[in-house]
Every structure is written in C-alpha cells, then in structure tokens.
Simulated scan of single mutants.
Amino acid sequence: MTRTLRVFRWSPNEAESTRDYRVEAHRDTTVLDALVEIQRAQDPTLAFRYACRVGMCGSCAVVVNGRERWACRTRLGDLGTGPVRVRPLYHFPLLRDLVVDLAPHAVRLRDAHGAFTPRADAAPYASVAGDSRERAAIDPAIECIGCGMCVSACTLVASNPRFPGPAALNRALTLQLDSRDGAHGARWEVLLGDDALARCHGQGNCTAVCPMGLEPTASVIRLRRLGLSQLLGTTG
C-alpha cells in the first residue's frame, strides 16, 4: 500500500513549509520506518531524531496527525487512509525540520530543583525499601524518560514561559516524597509561587499523551495537597 506523509520542513535559511512524500507501507510499517525510508531513498536533507527504534528512549517524539506520539511506535496502518501529517513537538525551539532543541526542558527541570539533593544528615547509601509506603507513593511517577511530549501537549507552557511544565512538576513530586532529599524547602518556594502549581489548568493533555502511562495531572493534584499541608503546618 502506498501512503503519503505530509512532513513539516524548516531550516534557518528557509521558511516553514510542508512536503509530501509517498512511501510503500506494510501492515507494521511505522512512521519512523517511513521517515527513514524517505531520508535514504528520496530526500537525504530531511532531519529527524531517533535512537533505539524500539520504544524505549523517546528520541523520536513528534506530532503525528495533531497528537504527540513516538514515531517508532506509531504504525501507519493505525492512522486512517489519508495523508499522515508529521510535525515537530510544540513549544521547543526548532533546529531543523522535525528536530527540536530540548535544552529548555532541562532548564525547566533545573529551575524546579529537579535534581536529587541528599540531606546533610542522610546516611551513606541510604535507600528506600521497595516494599515501603514511601516507595509505593513515589512509584507511579518515576518512569519519566524526558521525551518532552507532555510539554508539547501542555497549553500553559506556550502562554507562560515561567511555568515549570508537567514533566518538571511530576519530577518534583517524586523528590518531595523522598525522605532522603534535602531540597524540599527550596523546591516548595518554587512550587508554591505564582507560576507553578497554581497555574496548571488540569486539562490532562499531558497525561493523555504520556507514552509511559504516567499521570502528570495527578502528580500536580498530589503536590497541591502536600503544598496545602505545608502551608497549614501539618506536615514536615
């Protein structure tokens, strides 16, 4: 079966455009398979990012037919019969064609104190037992791989550059629940400020597109509850 991919094109020296490519597709042909075939056989200038090709790394995240997806996990046969529209993730600076600069993603994580900071009095090699209540509370939010799809789907990221974004807030939850972390106070200053938890609209777009099945929207709700307890002085 022949399928048409309508691909977003842009480079620093060219205006935005779309270009149609026709590829032969089989039952299990993925969007990534088609992009690789286009680059190899039709247009070697087409730029896109990928690595593992087996749905583990998240490098191939793009927007397909208006929805954030991993190109390597999205089969053309599941996308209807019309042209398949492929564009880069939203809310990230463009580098070329389907490739975006993920550096702002790292900046949001940094500004939300997304790095683990050991407590000064933490025991060497401190661990959280796998069968503990603490670990059970953290587990639902720890599998984020930083693909950026939730950030692309978040409408608030576009309107407020100071908003940490769903991935950073999800990460913050795991750290605020971790008894070994020593940056809870600094992190609460960010989370309880004007541009973090209070700004999330709870639309759930981030949860809808997460390929790992995480629920950043639920993480925000949990952080709000913890934050309220923090403000009322009912938790440490």
Rank of each mutant, 00 (worst) to 15 (best):
Q176N: 13
L214E: 01
T18Q: 15
R187W: 02
A71L: 04
F163I: 03
V23A: 02
A186T: 11
L197G: 05
P216S: 08
G55E: 04
M1R: 06
A103V: 07
L228D: 00
R69A: 14
A136T: 07
R67I: 12
W70Y: 15
A106M: 10
M56I: 11
P211H: 10
P124T: 15
V151I: 15
C210D: 13
M1H: 00
C57K: 06
A136Y: 02
D111R: 13
A41Q: 15
M149A: 15
S59Q: 04
R27G: 11
A137P: 03
R53T: 12
V84L: 01
R85S: 10
R108W: 10
C52Q: 11
G146Y: 00
S229L: 12
G193T: 01
T207V: 12
R67L: 10
P211D: 11
A198Y: 03
G202Q: 12
G227W: 02
D111Q: 13
S132Y: 08
A61N: 07
P44L: 14
A47Y: 00
D131Q: 14
S17G: 09
H26Y: 07
N65I: 12
T4M: 02
V31N: 03
V62D: 00
G165W: 08
L35N: 09
R222C: 00
V128F: 01
P93C: 09
